[in-house]
Amino acid sequence: MASQKDILLQVKDLKTSFFTKKGVIKAVDGVSFTVKKGEVIGLVGESGSGKSVTSLSIMRLVPQPAGKIVSGEILFKNENLLNKSESEMRELRGNKLAMILQDPMVSLNQLLTVGYQIGETFKYHGKADGSLLTKCINILKKVKVPSPETRVNNFPFQFSGGMCQRVLIGTGIANNPELLIADEPTTALDVTIQAQILKLMKDLQKEINASIILITHDLATIAQICSKVYVMYGGRIVEKAPVKDFYHDPQHPYSEGLIKSVPVLGKRVKRLYAIEGQPPNLINPPPGCRFEPRCSKAKKVCSQKYPPEVELKKDHQVSCWLYS
């Protein structure tokens, strides 16, 4: 077990739902995990599995009024974020806790200069001492935007997608956060630019020693920079594993299927493995394992009771009836 002081974030039995006309969507339904200092965690899963809602819950930014954190604890440096006031949260966000969103074009305000938007993060947190412009230029330098002195006065539409994503990463790290949550930071980008951004994130992580939660459905991105992988399915985490175990020896049938279904460059096979069936409906989910309708290894108990999490070895846990 990690000693208490190595732990930066501890999420305990988090439940977040959306109360809609169609019913209660249990977007996150009992999620627990920890993030240690300096660790890069990959959170993977299909769209709608609850990755973004998990991270929005940590930031206390769940869309209102439909969304609500129903229960659980989110301990950041041993303090429960769910007990914090809105002004205390504002103090944390963009400072010790930062988040980079999926679509750079949407996340940046198109009507304000890039420099202004980076500057805002400093000002907000009372660090606007003296040479704000120099600081903004330094951030652009850090994220390797070419000719930062002139670029600082540009508007986002004058930047390519890759450069906007660099700017967002720049605002994310401006105040040296302890935890950075990046939601699909490279999904909207081309492969050549993707490689650049991943390298940048890796280097910055080392430099400021932040912990990162990287959210993606792209298994290749995870393999590149994460040390651990948490796999989500239907609002729950079904497997937690060190990155190598996840790729070479996945234990949950869903993880196994996921890895097998990715076509590998240069290794063409006759027929791809495919997990049949559709992702689960999160309104009135069945009591048992959410993956049961698609699982080829399902047993009788699987549809009746949700499987408990068992530890297979150090840092490797799985929730599946095959193991308990």
Binding site: V191, A195, K199, A223, Q224, Y247, V264, L265
Partner: peptide, 13 residues
């Protein structure tokens, strides 16, 4: 540049 789904293979920029 294509990211590879294998933690042992590192992609170069």
């Amino acid at each position: 540049s294509v990211p590879i789904a294998d933690p042992d293979a590192k992609v170069e920029v």
